[in-house]
Write a protein that binds this DNA or RNA. Structure first.
Lengths: 143, 143
DNA sequence: CAGATTACTTGTTAATTGCAAGTTAAAATA
DNA sequence: TATTTTAACTTGCAATTAACAAGTAATCTG
């Protein structure tokens, strides 16, 4: 059964506020990063990520993201214990937001992963197109 | 006296995580929006914005943003009660993040302000250049 | 069948947020 | 000049949310 989208109205009609209400916490964008850039698709993979999200928070965030139509869930046909989380088109459309946030932090904070930053800087549109292409390929053999 | 930048290390070296730790809450980006797009510069102006931030949260966020070098503060030379908050270059560099978040929400949620969205869509680089130009003009007669 | 794995839930504690009220200094008003 | 108003906060408290630890049910593996 699909989890329903939150019915509560946003604090204002401002589009930035909508983004902030949907994504403005300490974990949501990291889960999306793991799906988009690292190809993570399962609960345990998210748990093993660098920043160590707690299990209950992860469960809540996955429900919230599904409620907003940013990710979708299916049972793994090969392993009944597993659920496969994938980004929807709406989720993939966050790629420009993520890349801009990466570039901003790379310019102004001390961070790792210079190879990622180099790739994005070299050709941001191409980088996003590549990410999207991988998503299309990996989504095609599902549902 | 300048408020010092938080000394605590980020949870990971990932540049996206740095952005999330600095900006990932329900208010920081709205304050930056008010400064960048609406030209707000004072505590009371921020309080009067649509989403109604609480006074203590606003004070904390302003300190945090100053600590990260995203905004800076000065006394108003014309009114000793007032402090003037302005975006730094680092803060202005968030313009692409903000515009991408606006475009994403505009595409996927019901939001207001179609004129803003139209302007950004028409020419995103030009829109950002215009915002930056206004900031240069308004900052020139300070400091 | 025994043990491991996966995706959670539940309880408890710690931290953060939100609301209301109070404080201080400076400016405007009577 | 005395009083009131304004601006920028701080303080205290209740409510919400996050973090940590442990437990559970279904499924898979040996």
């Amino acid at each position: 059964m699909p989890r329903s989208r939150p019915r509560t109205k946003f604090r204002s009609g401002c589009p930035l506020n909508a983004s902030v209400e949907i994504l403005g916490d300490r974990w949501s964008l990291l889960i999306i990063r793991d799906m988009m850039l690292r190809g993570f698709r399962s609960y345990t993979q998210f748990l093993e990520s660098y920043e160590h999200i707690a299990t209950n928070i992860l469960a809540h965030r996955l429900k919230k993201l599904e409620g907003y139509g940013i990710i979708s869930t299916q049972q793994d046909p090969l392993d009944g214990r597993k659920r496969i989380y994938t980004l929807t088109q709406k989720g993939m459309d966050l790629a420009p937001v993520l890349t801009e946030m990466v570039l901003w932090a790379a310019a102004h904070e001390e961070t790792h992963n210079p190879e990622l930053i180099r790739q994005i800087k070299k050709d941001q549109q191409k980088f996003i197109a590549g990410v999207r292409q991988k998503w299309v390929e990996n989504s095609s053999h599902l549902g």
